[in-house]
């Protein structure tokens, strides 16, 4: 297990980041980790929200009118640029005789070849994952939908789950390759809907996963796989074709 997956470490760093005492390279490194490990971002968001109560307590000081005027002017300028693009007759010869555009054209072509040659963007790549998680007696208990268009996943529990004291409701992603470790995707609330944000890495991880599991895990444990399965569900991938 990566050291940053240990809650006691990443939660402490997340608090220091939210407080603002992480600085320099440590701060930059932590920001990179937030992009790689979404659970670290979650921890930071939660501490940001908790500390924001402090920000709400400062006495109000009205900023000068000039600040809003500058903001307004800036927005207005952007909107003008967006709404009235300059129209010029297009000349292929002129386009390719200008070095910068020629180079840009080549770069676009290379990028297009790279993107459309990438299996992730092929027409048969999944655009949505769904799963119905069932209990041990095959009762449907939770619905999971992950949308590529929104890069979000929603888990809807059919009914409230009584979580034993000292345990947490943990959500897992089980890879197709049984030799690979299970993926602990975080803790669920015991009722209603949970929403997750997906990154590209996570989406690629879902492509290689076979089922979701919801389990009870000891609150302070760092288990590498589910120990007390509650619900399981096969992952169904939907493609455009």
């Amino acid at each position: 297990m990566n050291r940053y997956q240990k809650p006691e470490l990443y939660e402490r760093l997340a608090m220091e980041y939210s407080l603002g005492t992480l600085k320099g390279q440590a701060r930059s490194r932590f920001e990179k980790l937030m992009d790689i490990h979404p659970f670290i971002r979650v921890a930071v968001d939660e501490f940001d929200a908790k500390f924001a109560v402090l920000a709400e307590q400062v006495p109000e000081v009205k900023p000068p009118e000039s600040v809003w005027k500058n903001i307004e002017a800036n927005i207005s300028a952007k909107q003008t640029v967006v709404s009235t693009p300059e129209k010029k007759p297009f000349s292929l010869l002129t386009f390719f005789t200008q070095k910068g555009y020629a180079l840009a054209g080549i770069m676009v072509l290379i990028s297009a070849l790279f993107i459309f040659g990438n299996p992730e963007f092929s027409s048969d790549s999944p655009v949505m994952f769904t799963s119905t998680l069932v209990s041990s007696n095959d009762e449907p208990m939770a619905e999971v939908v992950a949308m590529k268009s929104e890069m979000k996943m929603r888990i809807k529990l059919k009914e409230e789950i009584a979580v034993p004291e000292g345990k947490t409701l943990t959500f897992w992603c089980m890879p197709k390759d049984p030799s690979k470790p299970a993926m602990n995707m975080g803790t669920l609330v015991s009722t209603g809907s949970n929403e997750m944000e997906l990154t590209k890495q996570i989406w690629l991880g879902l492509i290689d996963a076979r089922e979701f599991v919801i389990s009870f895990e000891p609150s302070n444990a760092n288990n590498l796989s589910p120990t007390d399965n509650l619900y399981t569900g096969k992952i169904e991938a939907l493609t455009r074709t």
Partner: peptide
């Protein structure tokens, strides 16, 4: 590894 942000809809 695949980790996902989990957040309660409040």
């Amino acid at each position: 590894m695949c980790f996902i942000i989990i957040r309660r809809i409040k």
